[in-house]
Design a protein around this nucleic acid. Structure first.
Lengths: 157, 157
DNA sequence: GTAATTCCTCAAGTCCACTTGAGGTCAAGG
DNA sequence: CCTTGACCTCAAGTGGACTTGAGGAATTAC
C-alpha cells in the first residue's frame, strides 16, 4: 500500500467516507490531482484528505463541483498547501457562504410575511417577486449551481 | 382566453416567470391540478399562481419537488385555500427551513474553526467529521433531497 | 373565414453528480 | 508462486428537473 509514501484510492475512500468511484470522478473533474505509481495506480498525499473534506463540506452548502474546483485552483499545485493557503480559500468561501445564508434568511422572512398575511393580491405579493431577488443575489442551490439565465425570463408583463 | 374564467397555461407562465413546459411538468408531478376546458386545454385558478410561487420559493431552499408536493397536499383540493390553510403549510415549512439554516450556520462555524486553525492532524479535525453530523441532522440539499444512505459508509476505520 | 398563435401529447434529449458493469491488471498474504 | 482482493479504464445507466421537437388540434385576431 505505501509504494512511495502515497495513499491508495481505497485508503482515501476509507478516510473520507467517499465512494472510490466518486474520488475517481473528482479527479476527472479536476478537483484532485493524484500521481501514479509504477503500476499505474493512483497515489494521494495526506493533504488530499483535506481537499476532499473541503469538497464534501462545500457541496453540502449547495456549491457545484465546478465552483468548488475554481476555489481549489487557488491553492498551490506544486507544494502542499499551507495554513495560510487554506485560510485564503476559506475566506473567499466564507464570503459566499454568508451571502447565501443571508439570502436564505431574507427569503424565509419574505415567505413568513407573505404567506402569513394571506393577501391574495398576488401582483403585489412579495413572494411573487422572491425569485427575482434570489436570481439577482444567488440564493439557492439552483441558481448558484446551474446559472441558468433562461430560467428568469422577462416576467410579470 | 377567459373560457369559463380560468387562466391559460401561457398566462400562468407570464405571471410566474416559469416556462410553459415546467408548468406542465409540475402538473405531471402532482404539484398543481388544473382542469380542462371544452377543447382540452388547461385552465388555472388565480390561486394556482400562489401555489406555483410557493414551489419556486421552496425549490430555492433546496427542497425536492416530491417534498414540496407533500407539503402542498396538505392544502384542500376542492375549495381554494384560505389564509389559515396557507399559514398551516407555512408553519411546517418554516420549521424545516429553520433546521436547515441552523445546520448551515453550524457547518459554517465548523469550517471556520477548522480551516482557520490550519491543523493538519486530519483524524481529529472537525471538518473531517462534518459530513457525519450533516447526514445525521440533514444539512444540505444533497442529503435532504436524495436521502442516500449509501453515501455514508462505515467510514474512518 | 382564414391565418397566426397558442395549446395539446408523447418521446426523446440534457445536465449534474455520480454508480454499475465488463473485462482486465497490480499488489500483498500465505 | 499463486490466489485473492484492490485497482485500472471505458461505456453505459440513474435520478431529478426540466427542455426540445414532431405532429396535430384549439383559440384568437383581423
Amino acid at each position: 500500500m505505501r509504494d512511495s509514501g502515497g495513499l491508495s484510492i481505497g485508503a482515501m475512500a476509507a478516510r473520507t467516507g467517499l465512494a472510490v468511484s466518486a474520488i475517481r470522478y473528482y479527479e476527472d473533474q479536476g478537483l484532485i490531482h493524484p500521481w501514479r505509481n509504477a503500476g499505474g495506480q493512483r497515489r494521494f498525499q495526506r493533504a488530499d484528505i483535506r481537499r476532499l473534506s473541503f469538497v464534501i463540506a462545500a457541496q453540502q452548502f449547495g456549491f457545484s463541483l465546478e465552483h468548488i474546483r475554481a476555489e481549489l485552483d487557488k491553492l498551490p499545485k506544486t507544494r502542499a498547501p499551507s495554513k495560510s493557503d487554506w485560510a485564503r480559500v476559506s475566506k473567499a468561501f466564507r464570503r459566499e457562504l454568508d451571502a447565501r445564508i443571508a439570502a436564505l434568511t431574507a427569503l424565509r422572512e419574505t415567505l413568513d410575511g407573505c404567506i402569513g398575511c394571506g393577501c391574495l393580491s398576488l401582483e403585489v405579493c412579495a413572494l411573487y417577486n422572491a425569485r427575482d431577488k434570489a436570481a439577482a443575489r444567488g440564493a439557492g442551490p439552483r441558481y448558484l449551481m446551474g446559472d441558468r439565465a433562461s430560467d428568469i425570463p422577462d416576467a410579470v408583463r
